[in-house]
Design a protein around this nucleic acid. Structure first.
Lengths: 138, 138
DNA sequence: ATCAGTGCAAACGATTTGCACCTCG
DNA sequence: CGAGGTGCAAATCGTTTGCACTGAT
């Protein structure tokens, strides 16, 4: 836990735990995943599920986290807002997710939308087959 | 209803109705939206919600529809698989969706994924502010 | 001390499932 | 006629809410 907790919010034990889990996560997590992780780690009884949801809601309001869903799965997931953003390639067979090492839009302009729509963010997911599943199919 | 129904599946009245609605839809629809549309149009009592879900599930298995979610909203939506695919720009204020008139990846290569991941599909959503909401903010 | 945060259990909305009946092919 | 589809109601799953209690500042 060698990191600072952002200011302007009350840091209870529960909130710190959730924050730490998101901080160490390799990819966006659902409320359930966070709950399970806490339940496993915490001997002294875990938190109420509702608490996790409320904490995530509070984090979102404060702009600490980004709320999204994977497009192939309707579960809501949360990720800490860091400097940049990451896109993923998702395997259609084993559902493994591989982060892209760069954003294809870094130096590319977005297409016109017809009206003068002002683009500020974007989300991209690639789908296909990972090395293992591709070979397995042969 | 001047269109053919794909073969290899039993075409009940209910399935035809759902198919027609998806056929005429401008964008992906949720089971609820389809249900509501049928409930409104059909005087003679509408279908059981479960029927809509089962029909959509059957369509997906047959490869007739594509199942997705909007990334800013966890609702599951379905769209008929047609020739191409469409991306949308979503207004962060009024949630209006504007279809892009072309896919930015039409002539652009995907970034490396590290492993040799074989990309077959992709999904993109742009976020920002539509003309009206952009002006309203001033 | 005070007010926001938490636990618990009940409420909710979307989706699924079991079972008896009905219908397309 | 027979396999598969449908309606209904109960069950499930993720998430939200009301209320009394607890804890951070």
């Amino acid at each position: 836990m060698n990191h600072e907790y952002p200011q302007g919010i009350k840091w209870t034990k529960q909130r710190k735990d959730v924050y730490n889990i998101l901080h160490d996560a390799a990819e966006p997590l659902s409320a359930q995943q966070i709950y399970n992780q806490i339940a496993k780690a915490d001997e002294d009884g875990s938190y109420a599920p509702s608490t996790i949801y409320r904490i995530l809601g509070a984090f979102e309001e404060k702009g600490l986290v980004r709320k999204t869903t994977w497009m192939d799965d309707s579960t809501v997931v949360y990720e800490l807002k860091r400097g940049g953003h990451t896109h993923y390639a998702v395997c259609l067979t084993c559902h493994k997710r591989v982060p892209l090492r760069s954003c294809p839009f870094a130096h590319i302009h977005f297409p016109e939308t017809g009206d003068d729509f002002q683009i500020t963010e974007h989300k991209l997911e690639l789908y296909g087959y990972c090395k293992e599943c591709k070979n397995a199919k042969k």
